[in-house]
Amino acid sequence: MIETVQFETSTFKSGSYKFEAGTMNVAQAVGLGAAADYLKKLGMDNVHKHEQSLTSKALFGLLEVPGITVLGPKDMKDRGGVVSFVVDQVHPHDVSQYLDSKGIAIRAGHHCAWPLHRLLGAQASSRASFYLYNTRLEVDYFLEAVAEIRQYFKVA
């Protein structure tokens, strides 16, 4: 926020107040443009292909891990870049805490979808998301870590 404005110079309010209302989201707009350019250069088809390859590796990998239930369809039809799953006898927040300790960030909880979870017979769930900057090696690492969870919590 400004204090005084002249043609040659302006003064601003002190401290954090100088960042308050009055300045448009210029940095964000420029950032959005740069991100769009970046994705266009890569080609959205390539981005999609990469995401699908990672997600499919994770999905079919998870289906092979004992004690893991994948929620929703068990195929890649109409699937985005996410896989939701439940680890038998281990609460999703314990799942995410374990993965976090391995440097893996997932989302856990009811995902603002309580009625759906009730329908699926799950109190909450874990969800892994994949994007451009993830690699196939990371999916392997993720699957390895998921397979260790039930042992860590002594339910396997």
């Binding site: 314990d94 805490q97 374990y98 002594k154 339910v155």
Partner: peptide
Amino acid sequence: MQLDSLYQEIILDHYKN
């Protein structure tokens, strides 16, 4: 592992039984 300080043996035992 630091995680073990969170999930101490006693806690996991109480969780299981």
